[in-house]
Design a protein around this nucleic acid. Structure first.
Lengths: 339, 339
DNA sequence: GTTGTCAGAACAATCGTTCGTTCAAGCAAG
DNA sequence: CTTGCTTGAACGAACGATTGTTCTGACAAC
């Protein structure tokens, strides 16, 4: 059915390799103008499309990369991925996506599958601070780039948000509003995002000599129900916080739900800051004070970095740290005066 | 670097094809137990991973499918895609995704690219009612399945929501609440979703002999700003509607924003029904009365159908119509009594 | 008339698998 | 002792594209 070089060569009365040279614009150009035009016309006429499989087998370059993410149904990763896909497509790469639901075994299986498919490189949004799978990849010198989350110690091939600066900005903002009892709904300490944001929170609290009770730091999750549950616990505290810095917008949304359910108001009674600024994707977050992260751009940057790695271009040994920006909206306000 | 059959054969002192037979569990099993164990041990020891590219070239089956969608950053398609990816991965297929932003030229380029990559089939969520690209695919007898949107006339290989029934249920609900001036924020008439939902709206309005002014049917879009703009136009009408059926949840969210901005309340002054039930993904929609569509399941069903088409299993000639369900929440209420 | 040069095109190996065919040896039957 | 069958394994041709090498004339120079 599909036209091949061999068949095209037969039709043009030349050797298949000659057809290849014409169609690939061989730099040496060792082919007459007459033959060239004949072949080009024939190729167009029959709608010739090169078989990427055969080409890849021969050249050992598949022009396919793999992207491993926790869950594409999470808008965070969807927007990030969109940046990746657009940037990759622009340089002729296709992307195969694998969802892991943050399951280590699935991550390993996905990576093995992708390598079996001879992908030229891997974009991983699933890194844990201690991650043997990634260490193995690095040991094998397989081209990959981490995005959003990084390993500890941080490795060069990573494109990550400035989690620490974002957390500091969020907490400084709350302190400037007069809050003193500031809680943190934390992410997972196994992930750099959770760890670093918590660290930024702690550093800022301590610098200002504010209470850093362990009660005020509750493990949440990156999802709405986790934020809700964490906030419930904070509300049950003998001395409830007047402000909360949540590890991300989803957790913040859950916290707001818990607060309103308890008959309190945001920000009158309790102020909330989120992280990521998914307001474009999540309606409720429209009024949320949060730390904006250029997700799409981060995806593009990661893709660009991977492309450089694959083509062997020199890349700076430092990770790319994406600057973040505090966006003040209506979920934060002055600390309530104690009754 | 990577181990091949040939190399494994050299190490085991057998022909590469023998290694292949062992590792592929050749049904004829024409290999001695001794050789088998030797080869299996060797393969494990060297971490042999078959090269899918070479296999695909030979077998003409790539076990990769392409999925063409408007925009993965839209939660609707993200959830749908997740269903597709999970189902496909379960049968050993990988998925390459292409985003088109509903641009016809990009759709064509994407399909050409995917076919060049020798995908075994295509899942298209971008169909227009009149779609030459899809007609060409059908003419070439290339395996594909349409999902969510279909062509006119509807072709067998499609997995689509019951748009008409959903629209009827939505409008009947509003009529049962006493509404008589019911507007429709429409989608694109070029898409089956927009067209059929509008048709369901019209059919129901007419059956109940309600006013079907063309003023009441405003073209919106599938996005929030489009819903907002459309609602603004409806509010400017001399006789404003008391209820609105929006083509989807995003448009409904925009409409609600316009209503609240105008100092009116939902549902006290105006009732709103959406479509798709993206409440899990979009916070604002939590209170929205809408038509629920099992998106993830629709993706799974489409993937399953495509798998059947690829493997040549007999498939029913009718399209798969996914049933939908009206979910009544807080955005609809009784019609206000005229002043 | 021989040699050299060069353009234009053919040739052939290769990538890693797959799979239909062939082959060799062992053994039983005639 | 031949013939035929079975079993286990090798052989080799694909699949379609790429690319270094070789070949073939034509033409010019000596």
């Amino acid at each position: 059915m599909a036209m091949t070089l061999k068949e095209l060569g037969r039709l043009a009365g030349v050797h298949p390799s000659t057809v290849a040279r014409v169609l690939n614009d061989d730099p040496h150009q060792r082919v007459s103008e007459e033959v060239r035009t004949r072949i080009v016309a024939l190729a167009r006429e029959h709608g010739y499309q090169p078989n990427h499989l055969a080409r890849s087998l021969r050249t050992k370059r598949s022009f396919v990369v793999g992207t491993v993410i926790p869950d594409i149904a999470n808008p965070f990763f969807a927007i990030l991925f969109r940046g990746v896909e657009d940037a990759m497509a622009a340089s002729g790469y296709s992307v195969i996506m694998a969802n892991t639901d943050d399951d280590v075994a699935r991550e390993q299986r996905s990576i093995a599958m992708l390598r079996g498919r001879q992908v030229d490189g891997l974009l991983l949004a699933t890194a844990r601070r201690h991650d043997p799978t990634i260490e193995a990849l690095a040991a094998a010198e397989f081209p990959f780039v981490l995005v959003n989350r990084h390993t500890d110690p941080i490795r060069g091939d990573a494109v990550i948000p400035d989690d620490h600066a974002g957390a500091v900005a969020a907490v400084e903002h709350l302190i400037a509003l007069g809050h003193r009892r500031i809680a943190h709904i934390a992410g997972s300490d196994e992930m750099s995002t959770g760890h670093t944001r918590r660290q930024g929170y702690l550093d800022t609290i301590k610098r200002h000599h504010l209470p850093a009770d362990s009660d005020l730091m509750v493990p949440g999750s990156y999802r709405e129900p986790g934020g809700y549950a964490a906030m419930r616990r904070l509300l049950d505290l003998p001395e409830t916080p007047t402000a909360v810095f949540a590890v991300n917008d989803l957790a913040a949304a859950g916290a707001i739900r818990a607060i309103e359910e308890a008959g309190l108001q945001v920000p009158r009674d309790i102020s909330i800051v989120g992280f990521n600024d998914l307001s474009a994707a999540i309606g409720t977050a429209r009024l949320l004070t949060t730390v904006r992260l250029p997700l799409y751009g981060m995806g593009e940057a990661a893709a660009e970095r991977l492309r450089a790695r694959i083509t062997g271009q020199p890349v700076a040994p430092e990770p790319v740290v994406i600057p973040v920006e505090l966006v003040v909206r209506q979920s934060t306000g002055p600390a309530p005066v104690p009754a």
